[in-house]
Design a binder for these strands. Structure first.
Lengths: 204, 204
DNA sequence: TGTACATCAGTGAACGCGCGTTCACTGATGTAC
DNA sequence: TGTACATCAGTGAACGCGCGTTCACTGATGTAC
């Protein structure tokens, strides 16, 4: 494990330590000093790689959005050629991401950091959002134009439902336990929603 | 404003100060010392009325659940005799509560406090939840028994959607701005969902 | 291959700060007579 | 109504702590010759 005086890749080691700490204690419980200690390094060393605490969290979020966008993109492509299958796959991918990358997810959605304040963060966040919007756009082509809701509203509904399921039913949740597996909850919820749009047969 | 040496109702004054601070800075940014200062009192005085910082937050949440349950109950009753109207009214009430009582809302859903750790908190939370579940139960009576989802799943969907809308589209949101008014987003989302359940005509 | 030197990643000590919490206290308030 | 006294809400000082951040430094690494 001895890597000599210089660390080798301290920057990413700090990100990884931050990820673990954020997943364990939430983004606000996370401290720069702890992350430094976890990486076997003095707190001051962090400043060789990041402007400060917020900048480290922002980098975690940035990597999160990257992974997230890639995952959504992959799910979307895997679901093609059916617009419906592609759309449903992105919904599942949302939850899978939240489960598999809790530290990233928290840094992205629960740290309260300002997307505009960190260069590049807003763009990569928008890129992730765009995948879902594209899936919604394609799917809404299957609706008669007159009763077609805007695709952005469409995807906002799904995004909100997914986020709500994660926050309320996937976390160790405040005291209560989930009545249903989050995955089932989202799956059925999206199913009912799509039926309501006329994209699934009423008796499916 | 002089109320003499004794404060009069310091307990509630501290709760009110906490509410304002939590609404402004989030539940984790909130400090006991600031709350004390806002109530024109020494930090130590807080300990005459609360066991500590967490206990004060818990009391804010407790009062929040009380108001929340009352609001939901009122909306539910005002929507009767139609099960559908009653149900939709509770959805609107959820958002109205989040908007009108942001400090309470944050203490309840974003402070990460353990419902079980504070006596009475779990009960009052359950009471609030029960109102929505009751509305869902009644509404699901209008569905053929064979294709009726469990009412708890039903209400979980609506709860998740509502919470997601609040977190993602009602807050000053991380950098982005909402594409739609949150109220519209929830209204249309619930509408589509109910149509999917067969509780609204397909062309409504 | 060997030497001199520049670079710069990480050190270690220190800082000022605000936090939650404790403690012995004081003096306004309420009550008993 | 007046006096003596018990209560207890709020004071003020102090504590230990961990935080984010700064600074002059050191010594391992990489490069030029």
């Amino acid at each position: 494990m001895k890597r000599g005086y210089h660390h080798g890749n301290l920057r990413q080691a700090l990100v990884d330590a931050a990820l673990r700490l954020i997943a364990e204690q939430g983004p606000t419980g996370f401290t720069l000093s702890e992350a430094a200690k976890a990486a076997d390094v003095t707190p001051a060393a962090v400043y060789r790689h990041f402007a400060g605490r917020d900048d480290l969290i922002a980098e975690v979020a940035r990597q999160g959005y990257d992974i997230f966008a890639a995952l959504m993109e992959f799910a979307y492509n895997a679901g093609k050629p059916t617009a419906l299958a592609a759309f449903e796959a992105t919904g599942r991918a949302y939850l899978a991401f939240a489960r598999k990358y809790p530290g990233h997810y928290m840094a992205m959605f629960e740290s309260g950091l300002n997307l505009q304040a960190h260069p590049g963060l807003a763009e990569v966040a928008q890129k992730a959002r765009a995948v879902l919007e594209q899936a919604a756009e394609q799917l809404s082509q299957h609706l008669p134009a007159n009763k077609r809701p805007p695709a952005t509203m469409f995807s906002a509904h799904i995004w909100a439902l997914s986020h709500g399921v994660v926050e309320l039913y996937m976390r160790g949740a405040p005291g209560a336990k989930s009545p249903f597996p989050p995955e089932d909850l989202l799956e059925t919820g999206i199913g009912i929603y799509l039926r309501g749009l006329g994209l699934l047969p009423p008796d499916a």
